[in-house]
């Protein structure tokens, strides 16, 4: 299908409203791409169409949405572009970490300070320590950057991470390798009230066939399963843990642990602990 200048003039408003069928729209696009006069028509028609949008009854978006969008933008600004993934991966991760700890932390801290007062029901709970939170957030971002530099997929987990870092009771626990995996390390970031946590690991050993890593929440009387995850060649792994607060009485909370378990889902820990948060 071909379209000349007359055809464009006749169809330009329907095009701007998105009402042409696929072939018509493609023909018009092709013509406009090569015709300066029609491009002017198209820009004007787009403006008219967009002005229809301006007439909608105005409804206010929620404050929570702003917090969500700003947090997402802040995280995204540190995620490496695809092209950076192979070339100088480690240099990039290091540079991104510096940004996240330095400038990034300041930006986020400044934002949080206004946002915290904005968000937390105007007055109460101002005791939230924005600085500490921003440091924790910066660390989390660094780890996200490093994880993604190692090609660990982020996917929809990003939403969960954003949810976690916006909680006032955010906690960050370093996890260290046991004798079974001395080089391994990890971070666990979690919010008890939110029932959400995020685990990032590095240098975990490669898994034997039929095995998976399993994360546990350790109580005095029970280990409850947080979830299973695999690692890449560098031992990097990520896991989002949901619904931590099971409401059952397992005794005092002691910490977090990672074990190697059979890939078939288990609810009991059987394998040796490779990573732990320093169990109390």
């Amino acid at each position: 299908m071909q379209m000349d200048c007359d055809g464009v003039a006749e169809n330009i408003d329907a095009w701007a409203l998105g009402a042409l069928d696929v072939e018509e729209a493609a023909a018009l696009d092709t013509h406009v791409a090569g015709c300066a006069a029609c491009r002017l028509l198209a820009d004007a028609a787009s403006e008219r169409a967009a002005s229809i949008a301006m007439a909608v009854p105005l409804v206010s978006a929620s404050h929570q949405l702003k917090a969500r969008v700003m947090a997402a933008a802040s995280v995204m600004s540190d995620l490496p572009a695809r092209r950076a993934a192979n070339a100088s991966r480690w240099w990039f991760a290091g540079a991104a970490a510096a940004v996240a700890f330095g400038i990034g932390a300041l930006t986020w801290g400044g934002y949080l300070q206004t946002q915290v007062s904005d968000l937390r029901d105007r007055e109460a709970r101002v005791r939230t320590d924005a600085t500490a939170q921003s440091n924790q957030f910066a660390t989390m971002r660094t780890e996200l950057v490093q994880a993604s530099a190692k090609n660990v997929s982020l996917g929809s987990d990003q939403d969960a991470v954003l949810d976690i870092v916006s909680r006032p009771d955010l906690q960050r626990l370093p996890m260290s390798g046991t004798n079974a995996a001395p080089a391994a390390s990890g971070r666990y970031i979690w919010s008890r009230t939110g029932g959400l946590g995020a685990l990032v690991t590095s240098n975990l050993p490669a898994l034997p066939e039929g095995k998976t890593y399993c994360m546990w929440i350790v109580y005095e009387n029970a280990w409850t399963r947080g979830g299973a995850f695999d690692v890449d060649q560098t031992g990097a792994g990520r896991l989002i843990v949901r619904d931590l607060a099971s409401g059952q009485d397992h005794g005092a909370f002691r910490g977090f642990a990672v074990t190697i378990e059979p890939s078939t889902a288990t609810t009991q820990h059987t394998g040796a602990t490779v990573l732990e948060s320093g169990l109390q």
Binding site: A53, S60, A61
Partner: peptide, 12 residues
Amino acid sequence: LYDRYSDLVYSV
């Protein structure tokens, strides 16, 4: 920019 246009974007 968000403050300027979020209500409009949301409404549309």
